[in-house]
Simulated scan of single mutants.
Amino acid sequence: MSISQSSIIPFISTIFAAIATAFGVNAFIRPEHALSMFEFQYPTSPDAKQLVDYLMIVYGVRDIFIGVALLSAAFSGNRKTLGWNLLGFAGAAFADGLVCKMNGHGEWNHWGYGSFVAILGLVLAGGF
């Protein structure tokens, strides 16, 4: 059996889906904590706080969508779709890391798991 047909791969993908969904829910409930994952300082002025809180809602919706997309592909049994969804998730992680790098630090908090997600996606999409 090839690695792309292993039953553990959808299970691992489901874990990543749960993590993405949890990140999204966290952004809704605790925007200050979600912002800390990018190693940005939470603003002190009320207008800036409101803006950041609203942007964290957008970020949260994105992460929840990623989680739902991964779960739907994993539960439907379509491994190629799951692989492409994982590659999309890896792309989002890469972009998040790039923003952190532009801020001066914290990029590997995103690029570390993003690399693993990308490899998993490539396996399922037929890249190996």
Rank of each mutant, 00 (worst) to 15 (best):
G60D: 06
D53E: 13
N109P: 03
W108P: 06
L51Q: 14
L55A: 12
P43C: 07
I29W: 12
G97A: 03
G67P: 04
K49H: 00
F28T: 05
A18G: 05
L51F: 10
A73C: 09
G91K: 05
I119A: 15
D63I: 10
T44R: 15
P10R: 10
I15H: 07
G83T: 00
M102Q: 12
T21P: 02
R30D: 01
T21M: 03
E32V: 14
A92D: 12
G97C: 05
H33N: 15
D96I: 06
P43F: 04
F65P: 01
R79V: 03
F23K: 11
T81F: 00
L124M: 13
F40E: 08
I29Y: 09
A22W: 13
A118F: 03
F128L: 15
N78F: 00
L120M: 11
V25D: 08
G104F: 00
Y54F: 12
T14I: 13
G77N: 07
G77Y: 04
A90E: 00
Y59S: 07
T44K: 15
L82S: 13
A20G: 07
I9V: 15
I12D: 01
S76F: 05
D96W: 12
D96P: 08
N78P: 10
A90H: 05
D96K: 01
F94I: 09
A90M: 00
S13T: 02
A95K: 01
D47L: 13
A48D: 08
L35G: 00
P46L: 06
A48K: 15
L120K: 07
E107T: 03
T81H: 03
Y42L: 06
R62V: 08
D96T: 04
V68Y: 02
G60V: 02
T21H: 06
V25E: 05
E32G: 11
G126N: 04
F38W: 15
F94R: 06
I29V: 13
S45P: 07
A118K: 12
L86K: 04
I66Y: 03
F75G: 05
N103W: 04
N103D: 12
C100F: 07
G91I: 02
S76N: 10
A22P: 07
S36D: 07
L71V: 08
F28H: 01
S36I: 01
E107G: 05
C100T: 14
F23N: 10
I64N: 02
P31V: 02
Y54E: 14
F116K: 10
I57G: 11
S76H: 04
L70V: 04
I29R: 13
T44W: 04
V52S: 07
P46C: 01
K80C: 00
I3Q: 11
G127C: 05
S45C: 06
A125R: 09
L70Q: 11
A92N: 09
A118L: 14
G112S: 10
F89N: 07
S76V: 02
G112L: 13
L86D: 06
H33S: 14
V52F: 09
I8W: 13
L98D: 09
I12N: 04
I57Q: 10
F75P: 08
I9P: 11
D53S: 15
S115V: 14
A69D: 04
I64R: 00
G67Q: 02
I64C: 10
M56I: 09
V58Q: 04
S7R: 13
S6E: 08
A18M: 14
S2F: 13
F23H: 15
G112Y: 11
G126A: 03
E107Q: 15
